[in-house]
Amino acid sequence: MIHNILHNYLFWVSMIIFVIGIFMLALDRNLIKKIIGLNIMDTAAYLFLGSLGYIQGLSAPIFTGKTMGQTGSELFINPIPSALVLTGIVVSVSVTALLLALTVRLYKKYNTLNLDEIIEAAGKEEDDD
């Protein structure tokens, strides 16, 4: 049991970070902290994904003059998880940007970052467009 946990320590670390992130995203009332939570959650997922493809002692999958002509499997780590992490980072960056933009708009309108207060204030107002 202990051996398994130690052997898969990156899995456990990323799960703990993921849970911290998802709870922050779901439960914290401050919008900025929510966005930080989202990023912590995504980072944990990417840490886990990156660790799946990592092979101890091997290098990044980039062919250079030295490695030309050799097959990749004994030199390089698995490049697919790294590529997926890159794609995932792009997704989370764009979502973060969108959330920050919405937060700026809400802060300008209601002068607070607390989501409960914002919802309460928005509930009272009539449609103003």
Partner: peptide
């Protein structure tokens, strides 16, 4: 309007929790 932006924010938060679980 403030109402629709705060509704969009709530939608995004729920939706991103779902996405996080999906990607995991």
């Amino acid at each position: 309007s403030g109402k629709s932006i705060s509704a969009a924010m709530r939608y995004m938060i729920f939706s991103l929790i779902g996405s996080g679980l999906l990607v995991l």
